[in-house]
């Protein structure tokens, strides 16, 4: 499982952080999302998938 962020698209909604704080954080200055684990472990798949779906601007992409 590999997570990618389109930083151009991110609008700082923070839904990813709220859904999967193990994997996502926010830049203190810009509020733009930060990926803490680009290849999160399989036991986080459900919350990572939910986080990807929760992005209002579809800035997150899940591969694998």
């Amino acid at each position: 499982m590999h997570v990618k962020l389109d930083t151009q698209n991110c609008q700082a909604y923070a839904n990813c952080l709220l859904t999967a704080p193990e994997v996502f954080d926010l830049d203190e200055e810009s509020g733009i999302a930060i990926i803490l684990q680009e290849n999160p472990p399989e036991n986080l798949r459900a919350v990572v998938e939910e986080a990807v779906r929760s992005c209002p601007v579809q800035a997150l992409i899940l591969e694998g």
């Binding site: 700082a12 952080l17 509020g31």
Partner: peptide, 21 residues
Amino acid sequence: APRALLAYRRRLTHPQRVPAL
């Protein structure tokens, strides 16, 4: 203050929430 919502979201998560799949 979006980060502040994290703790509230945790507190409002239902214990029966199924970690789907």
